[in-house]
Design a protein around this nucleic acid. Structure first.
Length: 578
RNA sequence: CGGGGUGUAGCUCAGCUUGGAUUAGAGCGCCUGGUUUGGGUCCAGGAGGCCGAAGGUUCGAAUCCUUUCACCCCGACCA
């Protein structure tokens, strides 16, 4: 590709509305432009990067036996109603009515269609296992798109769906994807961490996330110091605190705390610390009401809560429900005498481990002091249980080992879905005995754009991007200094030779000062640069230099193309075998 | 959806508090001519704006008021 004939609109200044480095560099290097909040146009150089990432993903998926296909982006709403995800997804699900008044969904993911299609075609155990995948645009009407391409409304995802006859087969399908993902991210040149994850709205029984640790990540990774295990914050387990020996304490007593509802204001008013408080949160699950008790300085982990409650979709109760259950305004719920008015009360072990606590009094503008868990409210009972329902905090332990936190970007996730979708959409087959069975499923996603952005987050310097060669828009940039005929002739010849050898080369043939061309080359982040200038060329040499290194080596014009091609191959091989 | 902020040239921004001599500006980018050629040359000339939109106040509005839209940040939410 000749630089003068392509469109790579680099800019010197940092765009005002780009906060994180990958977003800034993608704009500055002319890879993309914003069209609206959360939607981007990819320009030629940026699109080349995405194409290369997709090619790697395809190769590894194909090698793992998955089958490339494509599903419609516009899907009938009824499919989503069948699985209940029209509700679960909420406002994030993009939908529109067509001219006939039919409701449609803009695909945010494709479990429903893929399962629907599979249901029509799968009817024998002989067809299993099978794994279908696509690389396609996805749409999610995010509350708040941000961080450039990391949380956009429209993005490219590879999503694969396996259909399996039994648990062992699902395990194998899952493992094949897991291994393929390791290869994909290694080949993309990314350092990644695999974390144990929750399945969230996807449903299912097991999940791992592939995460790129970096400062600007949105996900919190909880891990052992030696990285031998890591969890998504949603999943991270914590050791329960030991139950204290019984203490002598005065009887519980209500105190007047006018208009003091939040933890902070209660602490200020009663001169207490959050650790001394019991936070009582009221949730709804359909028509059931659940209370969740955590210590004042802890947060409820919604995923753990859903698991523990086992009532399906669960959300914070509305004001009316809270007032009905607690007989008080919002902000004054407490555990004493509450269990009888609920379907379920879940108590975090850290609350059970408190000696003397402060809680809401179930009376507007009142709190109760001298609350002793186990004495003033039961820890066990028909509808009362002590169970881990909180988010881990830094300093917590698990299996006696310290838990550390770091941030990361989620670039891929694998799930065992079980029968959640196949049952509702009818993926049935006859087993070897002629008995009807419902297929087990797994689903496996990779965020293509996120790979691009996280590679930049990981590899950049003051001059710009430093692409891993496997996903760089071009492998080599050929730069001429000056426009003397011998220079141009040598460059044209080398350009032709490199193309012949299959090297992806961007030939900067522009009549610009060398400084400008070098700056553009560095900003764009092409891993190797060949420079043809008068002084060296007079001695039959050209300069060759990896991005980011000061020193260039002189190579003979005659053998330059071959040497460059060898360097490219060596760099790629290093990523492939990692 | 709550809180905060910003909309002025393609980009980054000044001007707005205190309305009028600013004929709406600067730097970068763009076009023309010259100059220069190993890390974003220099000189000269030029094109480019309903000051986000709509109402209002005023003799007079980029500037004050009201409404609205868009975008960004924090939060809530989220595979």
């Amino acid at each position: 590709m000749r630089y003068s004939r392509t469109l790579i609109p680099t800019i010197k200044e940092v765009p005002a509305d780009a906060e994180i480095i990958s977003h800034q560099l993608m704009l500055r290097a002319g890879l993309m432009r914003k069209v609206a909040s959360g939607t981007y146009a990819y320009l030629p150089a940026g699109w080349r990067v995405l194409l290369k990432i997709m090619a790697i993903v395809r190769e590894e998926m194909d090698a793992a036996g998955a089958l490339d296909c494509t599903m419609p982006m516009i899907q009938p709403y009824e499919l989503w109603q069948k699985t209940g995800r029209d509700i679960d997804y909420g406002e994030t699900l993009g939908r529109f009515k067509d001219r006939h008044g039919r409701m449609n969904v803009l695909s945010p993911t494709a479990e429903e269609v893929m399962t629907f299609v599979a249901a029509g075609e799968i009817n024998s155990y002989k067809q299993l296992p099978i794994n279908l995948y696509q690389i396609n645009l996805k749409y999610r009407d995010e509350f708040r798109p941000r961080f450039g391409v990391l949380r956009s409304r429209e993005f490219i995802m590879k999503d694969a769906y396996s259909f399996d006859a039994d648990d062992a087969m699902l395990d194998r399908s899952y493992r094949a994807m897991y291994d393929a993902y390791c290869r994909v991210f290694a080949r993309c040149g990314l350092e990644y961490v695999i974390v144990e994850a929750e399945t969230g709205e996807m449903g299912g029984s097991g999940s791992h996330q592939f995460t790129i640790p970096c400062e600007n990540g949105e996900d919190v990774i909880v891990h052992f110091e030696d990285n031998s295990r890591a969890w998504n914050i949603e999943k991270a387990p914590v050791d329960p605190l030991p139950r204290p020996a019984p203490v002598q304490a005065a009887a519980p007593q209500d105190v007047h705390t006018p208009n003091v509802g939040s933890i902070d204001s209660v602490c200020a008013f009663l001169n207490a610390k959050p650790v001394q408080l019991i936070k009582t949160l009221i949730y709804s699950a359909g028509d059931k009401v659940v209370a969740a008790l955590v210590r004042g300085d802890h947060e409820v982990n919604p995923e753990k809560l859903v698991q523990a409650a086992a009532m399906g979709h669960i959300e914070l109760a509305n004001e009316a429900t809270i007032e009905r259950v607690t007989s008080a305004k919002v902000g004054f719920a407490g555990p004493i005498g509450l269990a009888g008015k609920l379907d379920l009360m879940l108590i975090d072990p850290a609350v059970a481990a408190m000696t003397i606590a402060i809680s809401g009094a179930n009376k507007t503008d009142h709190h109760t002091i001298n609350v002793v868990p186990g004495r003033d409210f039961a820890l066990e009972g028909n509808n009362v249980r002590v169970v881990d329902i909180r988010l881990a905090t830094e300093g917590d332990t698990y299996q006696g080992r310290k838990l550390l936190f770091k941030r990361g970007i989620e670039v891929g996730q694998v799930f065992k879905l079980g029968r959640k979708y196949s049952e509702k959409l009818g993926v049935k087959f006859l087993d070897i005995n002629g008995a009807e069975q419902i297929a087990l499923m797994g689903c496996y996603g990779i965020g293509i754009n996120r790979i691009m952005a996280s590679a930049i987050e990981l590899y950049n310097d003051a001059d710009g991007i430093r692409w891993p060669i496997s996903i760089a828009p071009w492998e080599v940039i050929l730069t001429t200094v000056g426009t003397d005929q011998p220079i141009v002739d040598a460059a044209e010849k080398l350009y032709a030779e490199l193309n012949q050898l299959g090297v992806e080369v961007l030939y900067d043939d522009r009549d610009l000062r060398p400084g400008v061309k070098f700056k553009d080359a560095d900003l764009l982040g092409i891993p190797l640069r060949a420079t043809i200038g008068k002084k060296a060329l007079d001695q039959g040499k050209i300069e060759f230099k990896p991005r980011g290194e000061k020193q260039s080596t002189m190579i003979d014009v005659a053998t330059a193309a071959r040497q460059i091609a060898e360097s490219v191959a060596a760099m790629k091989a290093r990523l492939n075998t990692k």
